[in-house]
Every structure is written in C-alpha cells, then in structure tokens.
C-alpha cells in the first residue's frame, strides 16, 4: 500500500493526489467593495461583506457567497486576484466561477518564485488581438513544440446569469507531450502563486447576488487551482512542517520542500526526478558503516559507467579509501571479521626494534622485519640467530 515502494520494497515513482491547492488559502484582491462602506456592501458587516476569502472558502454556508469588487466607475478597470499556494504545485487546471455576467477579458498568470515574477498561462477574451496582441487559440492546441500561453474565448454567460472561467494546462500544451519526459512541460505546470487579472467587465449587472444591478463590478466565487503538490516523483503526500509550511513527505533518499535534492549521505549518483517507469532514487554511499558523510564525484561516476560516484569522507575505525574498504596505514584487515565490523582493522603493532618500519602488509599484517628477525610483528629472532645488544641489528647469526 506504499505508493512510493513496490511489494518487494523497491522504490517506484509516486505523486501526491490531485487537490484544490487554493482551498483555504488567502486571496489578495486589488479591489473589494465595502471599503469604505457603500449602500449594498459593507466589509465590516458580515451580512453585507463580500470579502476575497469567499473565493477560497473551505466549507459551510455563508451569505453572501461571492467576492465583489468595488464599483469601477472609470478606467483602469483591472482587478487582480492573487492566491499564494504556499508551495510549488504542478497545475492541472484553474477555474473561477462568476456570480454575475463574466468579464469579457481575463488574463491568467503564474509565479514560480512566490510572487516575485509572473508569466502568463493564458488569456480569455473576445478580442484576443486587441487585448493581448495574440491570435485566438488553435482548436488543437499550440503549434509549437512546447506549451504556450494561448488566448481562449471569454467565459460565456450561463443560464443562471453567471459564468465559468476554466483553464486546463492540457489545452495549452501540444498533444502528445508527456510530463515525465518533457522538462519544458514540467516547468510550464510548476507554480507557487496564481493570479487572475480581470481586465474588462461586462456592462451588465449582477443577476445572481441579491445586490442591486451595478455596472463595472466583478463578482466571483470558487477560485479553484487543481494541481498536485510538486515532489518530483519522490513523495505521495505533502505535510505541514513545524512552522506550518507545506512540504513533501520525501522518500527515495531525497529531501527539500519539493524532494529536489539528495539527502546528505545519499549522493552515490546525481539527483533525478522520478518517472512512472524509473524511481531514480538517491542511493546511499557505500562506506561499510565507517563514515557518516560522503560527496559526489562526477569523474568517478562517469568512469564507473554511471553507476557509482560517491566518495566516503572521514572514514572511522582506522579504515580508509573511497568506500572505507581498506585499512589506513599502520593497520591491517582482520580476516576473521566482516569489512563492516568496527574492529575490522587491527593495529600492525610492529616491534619497535625488530621491525624496519611501522607499516605492515594490509592483508596479512606482516611487519617488515630487520635481518634475522621473524614473526608477524618482528618480535623474535629467526632460527639460527640470537639476540644482540644492538638495537640497530637486534638479531645476529649464532656463532
């Protein structure tokens, strides 16, 4: 039942479910009626307040149910609705329900950097050329190789007097483009904030709210941003952290708000986004349990045939090497212990007089002995030799 691992525990690509990312999020409206209070609209009176919170209200029944802009008596007639999603999401659709005759010109924008910069996702207008300098969207999506902001027909007035703005990322992408294999499409659907710019109201009044008929006023409800919490294929859900920020519940050795990097010890190969076919999990470095840190080396990774590029750092327990797989100078491998054993490397313990050095054979533990000296640590005279009084030549031939 773990979406990120198969029955055998092997990693597999996983994604959070489709949600309304705008639900319960604060909406900033550049215009709200009732500030200051007017005849039918008073932001200080709940019965006559048409706040922007009504656009993303989480539930229950309220009256009124619609946000309403202030009366717009003269140009500019732009009113902007901005919602921060609190985290990167991968968009699927955006919709906005109008409570009165829908505007005849709307621009939809997104930000990927929490509102610092904006790019258009699409336009909706009866005069694409005049309003946005664009041709109407082709019936079968953009002609180019990648997705682009197209100009769609303006929202149509429905029998109840309202209207629906509906944008689907699919409509602005060339057919056949696949999210797994297209970095361009991945970038296109990525957003942290959504902005709806209502640029030209219909010259008609409200037919759904109980308010008086007022020209030059926008009124809407149910701003929905359908999308998936962006976790790059390495999490099946997003959670609130201790500071109340939405973050991915990262798996596959990844970390970060979007699982966008490998965890510190998981750098045996470069980070990659998971796909439906390949998990591209970050792999832990192979350090035989003797190191807590490692670094990635691209040169070694290439030389290994793109299999392994991790280099262990600060090998402990007297081990050394890229994988802490051999003993450091002055130590040798104890054949009776596993390579991961804390005591896998034993001190050479070369005799201070009998040995010619302190470094022994790393496999056998044999110290380099002076002439006539024998033993693993060079601590005895060889047969036919006897101990002398000279520390330089500790064993001499027996007379």
């Amino acid at each position: 039942t773990d979406p990120c691992h198969d029955e055998g525990g092997a990693p597999r690509g996983c994604v959070p479910g489709l949600v309304n990312a705008a639900l319960g999020r604060e909406v900033l409206a550049s215009s709200i009626c009732g500030q200051p209070p007017k005849q039918a609209c008073d932001s200080s009176d709940a019965r006559r307040a048409h706040s922007a919170a009504l656009l993303t209200f989480t539930g229950g029944t309220t009256s009124p149910v619609c946000w309403r802009s202030d009366w717009l008596m003269q140009a500019p007639l732009n009113v902007t609705l901005t919602v921060s999603l609190g985290k990167t999401f991968e968009l699927v659709f955006v919709s906005l329900r109008f409570c009165s005759t829908p505007p005849t010109s709307v621009a939809l924008l997104k930000s990927q950097d929490h509102g610092r910069s904006w790019v258009p996702l699409g336009f909706f207008s009866s005069c694409c050329d005049l309003d946005y300098g664009r041709l109407p969207a082709p019936a079968n999506g953009p002609a180019g190789p990648g997705p682009e902001a197209l100009c769609f027909p303006e929202p149509q007035t429905q029998p109840d007097g309202g209207g629906l703005l509906a944008f689907s990322v699919q409509d602005s992408s060339p057919p056949g483009l696949d999210l797994d294999s297209s970095p361009v499409l991945q970038d296109w659907v990525t957003a942290t904030d959504i902005q709806v710019v209502l640029t030209r109201p219909a010259m008609l009044g409200d037919t759904r709210d109980s308010e008086a008929m007022v020209p030059y006023s926008y009124s809407a409800t149910e701003l929905q941003v359908g999308g998936r919490c962006k976790c790059n294929g390495h999490a099946s859900r997003c959670l609130l952290d201790t500071q109340g920020h939405l973050i991915c519940d990262c798996q596959h050795g990844t970390e970060g708000p979007d699982c966008g990097r490998c965890k510190p010890f998981y750098c045996d190969r470069p980070w990659q986004r998971a796909t439906a076919r390949e998990a591209h999990a970050c792999l832990a470095c192979s350090c035989n349990g003797h190191a807590r840190r490692c670094r990635f080396n691209m040169e070694l990774y290439r030389l290994s045939g793109r299999r392994s590029g991790g280099v262990c750092l600060n090998c402990r327990h007297n081990t050394a090497g890229r994988h802490c797989h051999y003993c450091r100078e002055g130590f040798y491998r104890d054949p009776g212990r596993a390579p991961s054993d804390r005591h896998a490397c034993r001190a050479c313990d070369c005799h201070p007089v009998g040995a010619a050095g302190k470094t022994c054979n790393q496999t056998t533990g044999q110290c380099p002995c002076k002439d006539g000296v024998t033993g693993l640590t060079c601590n005895r005279c060889a047969p036919g030799f006897q101990q002398s009084r000279s520390p330089v030549a500790p064993c001499v031939k027996t007379p």
Binding site: H351, P352, V353, G354, V373, T374, G375, N379, R380, C381, A382, P383, F385, Q387, R389, S390, P391, V392, P394, C395
Partner: peptide
C-alpha cells in the same frame, strides 16, 4: 623451533639514544 621474544632490557641504547622507543 619457537624463539623467545626480543628482550628490550638486553639492548644497549648508549649510541642510539635517539632511536630508543618510548615505553
């Protein structure tokens, strides 16, 4: 034949004081 281990007490360090290991 197992030879005895080197006896450190038998060595004369007079001319090799700088080589004498710390005990």
């Amino acid at each position: 034949e197992v030879m005895p281990t080197l006896d450190m007490a038998l060595f004369d360090w007079t001319d090799y004081e700088d080589l004498k290991p710390e005990v």
